[in-house]
């Protein structure tokens, strides 16, 4: 289902959640919707799902929304970020869903079993008593059982365990390639294999639309940790590394910067490198604009900021007697 948005805006009283967003997503395309908290991702998802009014124009599969709602509603599936906190029993939800989607309850039960969810065992349980993960599995089971043309998934794996997440990836890859996907996620492991383009929102505005490769080169981040022999500090400092404990230095880099920096580092330091770790950060850095130079800043160290034993790391190393930073914290 092709999505065409033109000058799409949404205001909540005085708050402008979406501002003149224009984009097109071809039928069969798989798009990641990324952005910082409050950037308008969920609002855009809800507009696409037909839950919010808006200004501007939105066409789904060639049908103007919301006036031609009926023509697209059957081919569209939406999974909200949080499942309803209602007292309705699981059995009623499943039966109602099967009825409005023209499916059988057995089909939905089969899909749920893919997530290790036995619906017959929880059929009497009110929805609100299920754990967040179980509710998410239930919603995904219902959604993926529908042969839809447009899937709108808002943080679909946020509450899932590793096994369920893998099953989701497998099931998703089995869906028709004609189906369009809008996936709201911060996780690299979802964005990388599941989508082929990215819409990046910032403060309600579309700041990037394009291929996933270009986006990940600028946004996906790795941490390079290097343990070096004494005397290498100036080389590392010049390249934006920060000193940590026990002769370890670290720096966060984008995917585009990583190969050249590693090559340079090994060429300059050679045998003085005792150990080297390169770790991919799981989340996308959507809070900050991509750095335009190699200077390090606190914003480039999202993982460092969240490190539980932060005191072990020397944030601002005091100069040593020779003007060099001390390697030990």
């Amino acid at each position: 289902m092709r999505i065409e948005a033109d000058q799409l805006s949404k205001c909540y009283r005085r708050l402008e959640a979406l501002c003149d967003i224009t984009f097109k997503v071809d039928s069969g395309c798989r798009v990641a919707l990324v952005g910082a908290n409050g950037s308008g991702k969920s609002t855009l998802n809800r507009v696409l799902a037909g839950l919010l009014s808006f200004r501007g124009s939105l066409r789904l599969g060639g049908f103007e929304q919301p006036t031609e709602w009926a023509q697209v509603s059957r081919g569209r599936v939406y999974v909200p970020q949080t499942a309803p906190q209602s007292n309705v029993p699981v059995r009623e939800v499943v039966q109602a869903f099967a009825r409005v989607r023209g499916l059988t309850v057995e089909q939905l039960c089969c899909m749920a079993r893919n997530f290790d969810l036995e619906l017959s065992a929880i059929e009497a349980a009110p929805l609100r008593t299920l754990s967040g993960g179980m509710r998410q599995k239930l919603l995904l089971s219902l959604a993926l059982a529908v042969p839809a043309k447009l899937y709108i998934l808002d943080e679909p794996t946020a509450s899932l365990d590793v096994y369920a997440r893998e099953r989701f990836f497998e099931l998703f890859s089995e869906l028709s390639r004609d189906a369009t996907l809008v996936l709201c996620s911060h996780r690299l492991e979802e964005v990388r294999p599941l989508v082929d383009s990215v819409l990046h929102l910032s403060e309600g505005r579309l700041v990037y639309q394009g291929g996933v490769r270009g986006f990940l080169d600028a946004r996906a981040r790795s941490v390079i940790e290097v343990n070096v022999a004494p005397g290498s500090e100036s080389v590392l400092r010049a390249r934006g590394f920060r000193a940590g404990a026990g002769d370890w230095w670290m720096r966060s880099v984008t995917r585009g910067e990583k190969p050249s920096l590693l090559e340079e580092l090994l060429r300059e330091l050679g045998a003085r490198v005792r150990d080297l770790n390169v770790r991919e950060l799981e989340g996308l850095d959507c809070e900050n604009e991509p750095p335009d130079d190699n200077r390090s800043s606190e914003n480039e160290f999202p993982e460092w900021r969240e490190r539980p034993h932060e005191s072990e790391w020397q944030r601002e190393p005091a100069p040593g007697p020779e003007g060099e930073p001390r390697g030990d914290a």
Binding site: G50, S73, V77, A83, P84, S86
Partner: peptide, 14 residues
């Protein structure tokens, strides 16, 4: 408030 409308009105339910 409970998210019931979000679930059902995103289905083919007028």
């Amino acid at each position: 408030e409970e998210g019931v409308l979000e679930l059902w009105l995103s289905q083919p339910v007028p």
